[in-house]
């Protein structure tokens, strides 16, 4: 049981580390505003939904 918990924690730590380093890695040039082709479905919680492109105050 303890081994299973330790194994899970180790995997979670590896994922967290890679996630952190991935988001610290700068985007290549000309790739700052790329988005997946999306015309918007009902899932507004998705990061690719066009509603997230609306800027505040506009």
């Amino acid at each position: 049981m303890i081994l299973a918990v330790l194994f899970f924690v180790a995997l979670a730590l590896i994922y967290a580390t890679l996630y952190y380093f991935n988001h610290q890695t700068p985007l290549p040039k000309d790739c700052e505003n790329i988005k997946a082709e999306c015309h918007g479905c009902h899932d507004t919680g998705c990061g690719n939904h066009p509603s997230h492109d609306i800027k505040k105050g506009s």
Partner: peptide, 22 residues
């Protein structure tokens, strides 16, 4: 533990691949 292990491995791999490609 295969299900949770594989989920975490896949998620980690995608992060790693994205980092390398960037």
């Amino acid at each position: 533990m295969d299900l949770i292990t594989f989920i975490l491995v896949i998620a980690s791999l995608v992060q790693l691949v994205e980092m390398i490609i960037k």
